[in-house]
Write a protein that binds this DNA or RNA. Structure first.
Length: 417
RNA sequence: GUGGGCGUAGCUCAGUUGGUUAGAGCGCCAGGUUGUGGUCCUGGAGGCCGGGGGUUCGAGACCCCUCGUCCACCCCA
């Protein structure tokens, strides 16, 4: 056993998974940049207070923060998500609105790891600030939806709900608290605990014994303001116009406290494990204000890389792209020829690798095979003496002699086929 | 944070009721093939059996602790 291993909940992403990650991020970037979202790279840590604005009833804030005091005495936290950072950046730079940004990168939560849940986990996401328009809600949701489609995912369901405005949410929360307290004896112990912390989240319980009480609970849409209700209808109409299918789920409240109005979640029906939620988001009108900025509307989503890739595995889509080189150079003379040929090929955009330590031709050919290169260039003493190289097409097992000076042009032609 | 399963070679795993120098397959290296990979054959390297303590004449096997990992709960992406 090695002396050192990765910390719990962290891991090394090696090839071919690493190239899959990068492709994932590239596809995401292409999709959202095509919709006017620009790239933001916020810091991975901030003043703890930035994240405290996410809400005191949120476990992400109260129990799972990676926080520490730095050498300057600042109370710092590794970001548990990126929405708060984006809002802080908005307040700090005051860009013109609408401000549409996307991000990609790791977040940190001190949780007990299990499948699809890590202490360092990656998300991609977008945030759009300064716009109240229901068309934006629908645009954001549609972008997530078409991104899943771009990966090849089919078994993804969209749930959507509205939480009303902040006053509505408060009222509803109290209404629920009253209702659940009345029926407390019928609730599971876990739900009772949740009730004292955040009555809304009791609705999220998937425990069987709770279902009857939940079914009878008051519905939020009965107690939201007219404007919030109209906003929700407009979002749904805008989704219909794009043929984005959804399920209204009036029990969907989501984890973070800052959500207002539109809230949504993407669930993979191909996953068996507990973690089927592969992405989610919503409006967070008021969060910018909480961070000291002007009253500003905001909406966004975050998608978990790991979970989305698990869903891809389950559906057998989005394989890791190949990173194989085009050419592998075998040099049994002294290594100099491989050295120079690789350099020349690479300089001309041909992906090339070689063997080292002047191993036997057999060993070098084995490396060539493993490299996945389509062609091998073989240089032995015969080739050196008549200024040629042997060009071998690996899968065909055919080879022919090529003048050393023609190698580049010859390969360029062959690789285009 | 709570509960349960599992830690033996780089990987996947065998290892009888405790009994000598701990095994297989795959992978890796070398040779068979003095200029050729993928198939085949032969050989080789590689293990403080997660760590610590205990029981025993004797522990990879049993007990305790600890760490890691997986699963469920909680929570969430």
């Amino acid at each position: 056993m090695p002396d050192f291993k990765t910390s719990p909940g962290t891991r090394d992403i090696l090839a071919p998974d690493s190239s899959r990650w990068r492709a994932f991020q590239n596809i995401f970037a292409t999709n959202v940049e095509a919709a006017g979202y620009s790239y933001i790279i916020p810091p991975m840590f901030e003043d703890l207070d930035v994240f405290l604005r996410l809400g005191e009833a949120t476990e992400v804030v109260t129990k799972e923060m990676y926080d520490f005091h730095d050498k300057g005495g600042r109370h710092i936290a590794l970001r548990p998500e990126q929405t708060a950072s984006v809002c802080r950046a908005f307040v700090e730079h005051r860009p013109t609105t609408p401000w549409k940004v996307w991000y990609s990168g790791p977040n940190f939560r001190y949780e007990k790891p299990q499948q699809g849940r890590y202490r360092q986990f990656d998300q991609v996401g977008i945030e759009a600030l300064g716009v109240d328009d229901a068309f934006l809600d629908a645009e954001v949701i549609a972008l997530a939806s078409s991104f899943y489609a771009a990966l090849g995912l089919k078994q993804v369901e969209l749930s959507i709900n509205t939480l009303g405005d902040s006053g509505d949410r408060e009222n509803y929360s109290q209404l629920l608290a009253a209702y659940f307290s009345k029926h407390e004896t019928k609730l599971t112990a876990e739900s009772k605990a949740t009730l004292t912390r955040n009555p809304l989240r009791v609705l999220d319980s998937k425990r069987e014994p709770d279902q009857e009480v939940i079914a009878g609970a008051p519905r939020i849409r009965e107690s939201i303001s007219k404007s919030a209700s109209e906003h929700f209808s407009a979002v749904l109409r805008a989704l219909d116009a794009l043929n984005v299918s959804y399920k209204i789920n009036d029990r969907l409240v989501r984890g973070l406290d800052y959500y207002r109005r539109t809230t949504f979640e993407f669930v993979s029906t191909s996953l068996e494990a507990a973690h089927t939620a592969i992405g989610g988001g919503g409006r967070y009108d008021g969060l910018v204000e909480a961070l000291g900025g002007p009253a500003t509307a905001g909406i966004g989503f975050a998608l978990g890389l790991d979970r989305t890739l698990l869903a891809c595995d389950a559906e057998g889509v989005f394989a890791a792209p190949s990173t194989d080189v085009d050419v592998f150079v075998v040099d049994t003379v002294d290594g100099t020829h491989a050295h120079e040929l690789c350099h020349q090929l690479r300089a001309n955009g041909i992906r090339a690798d070689r063997a080292y330590d002047l191993r036997s031709i057999k060993a070098q050919m084995k490396s060539a095979d493993r490299s996945g290169a389509r062609f091998a260039l073989i240089v032995g003493s015969d080739e050196v003496s008549n200024s040629t190289v042997m060009l071998r097409e690996m899968v065909l097992g055919k080879q022919n002699s090529v003048l050393r000076k023609d190698v580049l042009s010859e390969l360029s032609i062959l690789l285009k086929k």
